[in-house]
């Protein structure tokens, strides 16, 4: 589904790479948490999957496609297979809930009939069936994020990327959002979620990929926010190029 092979990414004007020699494989139907401090490379990783950035080195394959070989005019069609959710929701303030979700389908050229069926389905799935006529500012944060999720999944994407989707929400509302993401994942959609929310990660007991200064320092199935387990990373790689100032991943345990 998603495969990173020795991917490095650095932004112009900075010496420290945002991602350094990252290799990662995410299979179909997985639910993966990306954790790590701010600036550890979580968002860069998501942006690379979306082909919003190109890596400086290494190869990225998403949905069986080699991103470096994809011409830029094909990128829009590629993105139709991905759904994205952000911390700040990114709804259109002058469109109703229904129109926000329908907009996605309109711009990719879906027929009116398809939109009229798919949008209510998606809104029902996120639990907002009765609020399709509301404007975003009339909704709570949790409801707005549900609209954003409905928008992300209305086109039935194979992969859902979520960048701190619960970052602006109280724990109880966040739990509702997580239940929703879990339900989407059970439907077969691969979910990759970057987060700082330790309680969410601990409760879900899913695969956890921890980044530190652009490197993967832990990749643990059924893990928690703070690991109790022996690190699964390749020790040889760590020994060769220890990230500067990084604590050994096991040390915090």
């Amino acid at each position: 589904m998603i495969r990173f092979e020795n991917v490095s990414k650095s932004y112009p004007g900075t010496t420290r790479p945002a991602l350094g020699d990252v290799s990662l494989e995410i299979g179909k139907g997985e639910f993966v948490f990306l954790i790590g401090a701010s600036g550890s490379g979580k968002s860069s990783l998501l942006r690379l999957i979306l082909k919003e950035e190109r890596p400086n080195a290494g190869q990225i394959h998403v949905l069986g496609k080699k991103l470096s070989a994809m011409p830029s005019r094909k990128v829009p069609y590629f993105r139709r297979n991905l759904g994205v959710v952000f911390q700040d929701f990114r709804l259109l303030p002058n469109k109703s809930v229904y129109d926000n979700v329908a907009f996605t389908l309109q711009v990719i050229g879906k027929s009116r009939g398809f939109i009229q069926e798919a949008v209510p389905d998606a809104l029902k799935m996120v639990g907002l069936a009765g609020k399709s006529g509301r404007m975003p500012h009339e909704l709570s944060g949790g409801e707005q994020q549900r609209v954003a999720i409905a928008r992300a999944v209305v086109n039935k994407p194979a992969i859902l990327l979520a960048d701190e989707p619960t970052g602006n929400l109280d724990p109880e509302t966040a739990q509702g959002i997580m239940a929703l993401l879990e339900r989407i994942n059970l439907g077969g959609t691969t979910v990759v979620m970057a987060t700082h929310a330790a309680d969410v990660v601990d409760r879900m007991q899913r695969r956890v990929v921890e980044l530190m200064t652009g490197r993967i320092v832990r990749d643990e199935r059924g893990g928690a926010y703070v690991t109790q387990a022996v690190p699964t990373i390749q020790t040889s790689q760590m020994a060769q190029t220890p990230p500067s100032g990084a604590v050994s991943p096991g040390a915090s345990a």
Binding site: P76, Y77, R79, L82, R90, V107
Partner: peptide
């Protein structure tokens, strides 16, 4: 820019944008 960002994210073709 908000609409444009969303359009690009959901895969609207460049021509449509």
């Amino acid at each position: 820019r908000r609409e444009l960002g969303i359009m690009r994210l959901v895969g609207a073709s460049n021509r449509l944008i």
